[in-house]
Nucleic acid binder design. Sequence first.
DNA 1: AGGATATCCTAATAACTGTTAAGAGATGAT
DNA 2: ATCATCTCTTAACAGTTATTAGGATATCCT
Lengths: 111, 111
Amino acid sequence: MGIPVLNNNIPDDELDKIMDNAVLAANFLKAIGHEGRLLILCHLATGEKSVTELESLLSTRQSAVSQQLSRLRLEGLVTPRRDGKVIYYRLTDERSRRIIDIVYDLFCSEI
Amino acid sequence: MGIPVLNNNIPDDELDKIMDNAVLAANFLKAIGHEGRLLILCHLATGEKSVTELESLLSTRQSAVSQQLSRLRLEGLVTPRRDGKVIYYRLTDERSRRIIDIVYDLFCSEI
DNA sequence: AGGATATCCTAATAACTGTTAAGAGATGAT
DNA sequence: ATCATCTCTTAACAGTTATTAGGATATCCT
């Protein structure tokens, strides 16, 4: 059923660490807290896609898609690869995939 | 190192499920993608706190704390318990805790 | 009554989004 | 080489939404 609980009592020292990183974490969560960007991540979970492909998958204007991608790029979630005229995007690494899995687990694996 | 990858190829059926839930998920992520609310969750991770306690922990006005709590309540992340005049908030369940653990894992456990 | 919260409201400000338009890289034709 | 074209990125703009602050009020309990 999923993700293990790391620890039930986070010590105060580490709580401070969280607090220091709160802005960082909040920004990251904002980045994925967006319907379009979330869908992009889901689509990329099934494999590389070009911007044009995403444009039609999402029924969103190309420049909007591009901007959503740029936000995801900023967070390091996706990585572009140019092949001729076309730029393909993919999930950067296991971390990106983990995040989608988590969202999937939280919102889609319940009955 | 953490959270298991559920599957590398999410089938299209389930992708649709994700898409249906994208708005839901995005709203949820927006709720926790907020510095103040994230900090509240972190503080509650160490145990129940009253609104007044949170008010001073966060150096935020009471009405603001209350509003942030109400948003978290809406998402089911926190649960109030009244004891006389005081209302104590705690993380609702393992799901809430899991989410903080994940954020912690993503932002605080790296070297 | 009095303390602790929740709600409501208004105003000010900041953040976010999508749109258009202009620009940059790559490719292929002339 | 030049030009047109395709794909994509970026900047500028404008509408919308979120957030914060402040205060006023209502409520719930002792």
